[in-house]
Write a protein that binds this DNA or RNA. Sequence first.
DNA 1: ATAGGACTTAGAGCGGGCTCTAGCTCAAGC
DNA 2: GCTTGAGCTAGAGCCCGCTCTAAGTCCTAT
Lengths: 138, 138
Amino acid sequence: MAYGIGEVAARTGLSVHALRFYEREGLFVGPIVRDSGGRRVYSDDDIGWVELCARLRETGMPLEVIRKYADLVRDGVGNEPERLALLREHQERIESQMRALSVGLSMISYKVRVYEKRLAEGTAAALWSSPATSASDD
Amino acid sequence: MAYGIGEVAARTGLSVHALRFYEREGLFVGPIVRDSGGRRVYSDDDIGWVELCARLRETGMPLEVIRKYADLVRDGVGNEPERLALLREHQERIESQMRALSVGLSMISYKVRVYEKRLAEGTAAALWSSPATSASDD
DNA sequence: ATAGGACTTAGAGCGGGCTCTAGCTCAAGC
DNA sequence: GCTTGAGCTAGAGCCCGCTCTAAGTCCTAT
């Protein structure tokens, strides 16, 4: 199947601007086919690649690294070990991101519980004078 | 205890530049105390707050939102529901970030397995001619 | 007393990742 | 045949979050 840039944007969640930008930046493996009028025509494979790029970006891979990966794929068979290394590195970065997120999440969840408790008590305790507000009362 | 800006930077992982920047940006609840020479002197409470800010940033909270939260804390008692709402919103954003990361991670882990397999076979299969390289061979 | 190092300010600069603009071409529908 | 809408290019612009610079002050150690 063949798709126009607008369609691809709609399907992948990237903007048409971003798609053209990615292309200029060399993130695609092969050149995108053009129709008689010079418009980009994307194949299913292209969409697959765009979706991969989107996932890589979402997980924090810099454009430069995506480009490097695209370069490797473009160069063809023989550099699989390099591609694998690159992917594994990114795997690790994602894992450490997830650890950071879960540390942050528990900190915030703790605070949420504190506020919930304070509010539950506060509605009743407002009858008495509020206790000294500590500086760590955030 | 009292700490200089360099010490705080070392402890929190933020740069001294970032600490001054955060202060200018109004991310702190109260003014940072200065010594006779005009230098910043941080308390343990300040460090706690800086660490909170660092966790919020790490989990993707924009400076503007941290500022809003600081504003609420500064305004004191009475706006707990707003603070709670803000925290809960961020909680949800973190959770959806984590979902995105885990989607990306499984995609990448799948690719890693594919490459591992290909390499394991390839070392042996190199004896035969390599099969047609598909366009989705990335 | 002098050198070194940590600190101060205001403001400029930068890198990443888009995002938008201007001016144009093209294809399809009324 | 003319409007509308989608697409094209090259390049400028923007937002965020720092990061760095310049020029100066202050404390400490030798």
